[in-house]
Amino acid sequence: MKSNRRKFIKFAGLAALGWSICPSLAGAGPSRYKRIEEGLRAERWAMAIDTTKLTQEVMERAIAACHELHNVPRIESDKNIKWIWVETFYNLIYDQSHPYLQERQLPVLTLCNHCDNPPCVRVCPTKATFSREDGIVLMDFHRCIGCRFCMAGCPFGARSFNYYDPKLFLDEDEINRDFPTRDMGVVEKCEFCAHLLDQGQRPACVEAAEGVLFFGDVRDPESEVRQVLGERYSLVRKPKLGTEPQVYYLI
């Protein structure tokens, strides 16, 4: 290409414009930000819950591990906060149950489904809740205005709102300082332990439940979760709503 001064000036001008819009593109050397190298990565994180092995003890261990790690306050009223909790099989999967089903009253773990097509993300007016590239539906507590549209939007009752200042219900000595507490007036929910995955660890409930919860990349045919989904019969909650839940129940 024949170059001349006019062309050069044009190009330089465009480059300057580009650089002013997106400075990180310019300049050699290490990029300003990077991920932790040991972090676990996936195309699509998913969880499979083995309902046949869910004993009371296992579930309590998983709940305690999660709620202690994330400083989830224990509030004994209908204004409570739950990230992972117990429901009967029927309440979870009533649209795929019938009166003579053995498992009707079986207690089962419940948590955010980290839907592939999450209505909570669609309705949030500030993008305070958003989908990460690896499919985790995350909350940005700094940005949430507390309108609770996401709670109305969630068809699974996975979200809790901080009606109270959660610090009132947390013991100062027992606060886990590796994870923030929340402000009054924001919504929260299970995060698939995104912060642990980024540091190379598996979710707290998966570790605590030892072999009852399978976790991994559902797009990877070799992954543990994909293997078990291939071998056994499983259900997701309310599939007809098209939210594409990524928490599978093995039965």
Binding site: P30, R32, K34, L138, A194
Partner: peptide, 8 residues
């Protein structure tokens, strides 16, 4: 939001 943890 962006999933980076380290700052240069």
């Amino acid at each position: 939001r962006d999933g980076y943890q380290m700052y240069w």
